[in-house]
Structures are given as C-alpha cells and as structure tokens.
C-alpha cells in the first residue's frame, strides 16, 4: 500500500529535471540516429505552397528575416523550402532583416540554395538584392512603405541600389508579395504599414505565435501561414526536397509524445496522491 502511495507521490511531485533529461534524450536520439516517420500535410501548408507556386518572373517579393538567429533555427526549414520555390519560379527577391543578429542569416541561406541559384542563373542585382538590417523599428518600416528610395539607398554591401531590380520599387504598392519569416519582431509593423494598405503578405512564424497570427489569415491580410518547423517540414515534403525540417520531425514527434506521457502520469499522481492529500479530514 505504502509502495503504491510512494509511486503516486513520485508521479505527483517528480523532479522537473527528469522531464528535462527525457526531453533531451528524445530530441538528441533521433538526430544522432535518424529514421523515417511518415508525416501529414496540413491545409495551411498547402495554401502557403499555392501562393508561392503562383509567383512568376514579374513578381517582386520582399523577403523579411524578422528573427534573431535563435528563432532562425525554428524557421530555417520553411525559409529554405519557400525561397527555393521562389527562385525556381524566377520571382525577384529583396531580402531585409529586422535584427542586427540576423544580418548573417541571408548569406547562410543563399549558400544552402547555391545549387538552384546556379542552375537558374539567379543573379545579384538583377534577380535579388540583400539590403541588410533596414528594419530596426516600426518607424523604419513605415518609411520604406511610404517612400522606399527615400529610406533605403544602399544594399548590405554598401553599394547603391540604383540600377538594380529595386528601380521598379516605389512604395508599399510596388511589391507583389511580402514573405515574412518571423519571431514577432516587426511583423505587426509590416502588417500596419504594408498589409493593411493592401500589399499581399505570407508568413512563416514560430510555434507559439500561430494562434495569434491566424486571425490575420482569416481577415485576408495574410494570404497564407506556415506554422513553425512543422510547416517547414511539410513544405519540404510537398516540394520533394528533404531538408532540416524533415530531419527534425522525428524529435518533434517524440518530444510531443513524451510530454503527453508526462501529462497522463502527472494526472494519475494528482488523483492518487495530491487530491487525496488535499481532502479535508474529520468532520
């Protein structure tokens, strides 16, 4: 009897470091020894794919790395897969970042997309431009929406943007699409000064932001939403190019299952010990 009580007490009051340890094991395990688990594609990812699949050589897309490097890890799969599609379709890209730490990210991404860049002869200046850290705050976003060339004159490398594809860009109305990869730094500012004015937007956000970003999809401001790393993995699956997302999905799946097991065990402990302990005695 006391053994059972001891077990219940353990389930109710276990040390949180046990969770840390098990989560660590199930995350690291599949990464060290990969195996393949099937995944399903959500309608949100399909809608996102449909938007980028319709892009063509006449479209100019503003790609915003609205993340610091830490968030990039969660968004990386969606970034790589969607930018691959944009390059395949020949859409023009203007890349901007909204965090000083993110200035290194575009080059990292472009290096990983070197195969498709060289195959499509996607050239700097004509097909894409990297502007660097141009969105430090909402004021800067507002300025680029009102008069782009009044606010930005040079690219990340200090060269003038005159004579590049940006000659066609005047203000918010010049963009075919804004593709925001976000942890929430300037996403609201982009909505305020671009989305609400009518510039089409799509977003790839981190997991915790999904519930708060969905209303923008139903209101039509976002044309589509790609959910975190899972959405990225689904996009990789759709385009048939496996990448970091699909690799991470095993850890992702197992992590969720471990959490579910802990919730079940915790509730068993709650009914077997905590609640029993809390019951008033005597009368």
């Amino acid at each position: 009897m006391s053994e059972k009580k001891g077990l219940m007490r353990f389930l109710a009051e276990y040390d949180r470091r046990i969770i840390y340890l098990l989560i660590f094991v199930v995350v690291i395990g599949p990464l060290l020894s990969p195996f393949i688990l099937p995944i399903s594609v959500s309608p949100d990812t399909q809608a996102y794919y449909n938007v980028i699949d319709k892009l063509g050589p006449n479209d100019i897309v503003m790609v915003v790395f609205d993340t610091e490097f830490s968030g990039f890890m969660e968004l990386q799969s969606g970034i790589l897969a969607s930018m691959r599609v944009m390059i395949e379709k020949g859409a023009k890209m203007v890349i901007a970042v909204s965090h000083p730490e993110a200035t290194g990210i575009p080059e990292l991404v472009l290096n990983q997309l070197a195969d498709v860049i060289s195959r499509k002869q996607y050239t700097y200046g004509k097909d894409y431009v990297y502007l660097g850290y141009i969105f430090p705050n909402e004021a800067a976003v507002a300025a680029t929406a009102q008069d782009f060339h009044g606010a930005v004159r040079q690219d990340y490398y200090g060269k003038s943007i005159e004579g590049t594809l940006l000659d066609k860009v005047k203000d918010w109305s010049s963009w075919s699409l804004i593709s925001d990869y976000t942890t929430g730094i300037q996403s609201q500012a982009l909505i305020n000064h671009y989305g609400l004015r009518g510039t089409p937007m799509i977003v790839n956000c981190i997991g915790v932001m999904v519930a708060t970003q969905k209303p923008y999809v139903s209101s039509g401001i976002y044309k589509a939403l790609l959910q975190s790393m899972r959405g990225g993995a689904e996009l990789e699956y759709l385009i048939g190019v496996p990448g970091p997302g699909l690799t991470a999905m095993n850890s992702f799946t197992l992590g969720h299952y471990v959490l579910i097991i802990f919730i079940v065990l915790g509730n068993i402990g709650y009914f077997g010990y905590t609640r029993y302990k809390q019951k008033p005695t005597g009368g």
Partner: peptide, 10 residues
C-alpha cells in the same frame, strides 16, 4: 498535442 505530432496525423 497529438495533432501537433506529425506522425499522429499520418
């Protein structure tokens, strides 16, 4: 949580 784990949906 079950839905979020991609394997469950598959």
């Amino acid at each position: 949580l079950l839905y979020q784990a991609p394997l469950t949906g598959a």
